[in-house]
Amino acid sequence: MMKMSEIEALLKARRLFDTFALEKEVEYVLASDLMSDVLAFALAASLLITGLTNIQIVRTATMLDMTGIVFVRNKHPLEEAATLARKLDIPVLLCKKSMFETCGLLYQAGLKPCTICCEESD
């Protein structure tokens, strides 16, 4: 388990805005640029890592009760996405690292993946 604020420090990321929600903890992570897959596989209270910046990223995270969003590859959420994140008080971190490195650091720190359940196997 890691607090969003601890993730911010580990990734040398920057918070988009201050919120007490940065003290919330996450245990599971889903990293994807495909919101269709996020909707299918993300656990509640997990962390979303993405490089997409449109408003539907924030919508997707909130529909799924996810704890926070990390934008990787130095991407900044579009204005309407940032506004919605503030309104819904979902913590957003801006990270300059690649998705691979971001995931690697968080995995090393003990965070776990959301299970990908397939139709025909597992």
Partner: peptide
């Protein structure tokens, strides 16, 4: 899962991967 008829601009926004109806069912 995976079957989609969504146009490219929708896929670029992160949707249209053919998971919608199966996810509704799930």
């Amino acid at each position: 899962e995976g079957y989609s008829s969504a146009p490219d601009f929708i896929r670029e926004l992160g949707f249209g991967a053919g998971m919608g109806l199966p996810n509704i069912k799930k």
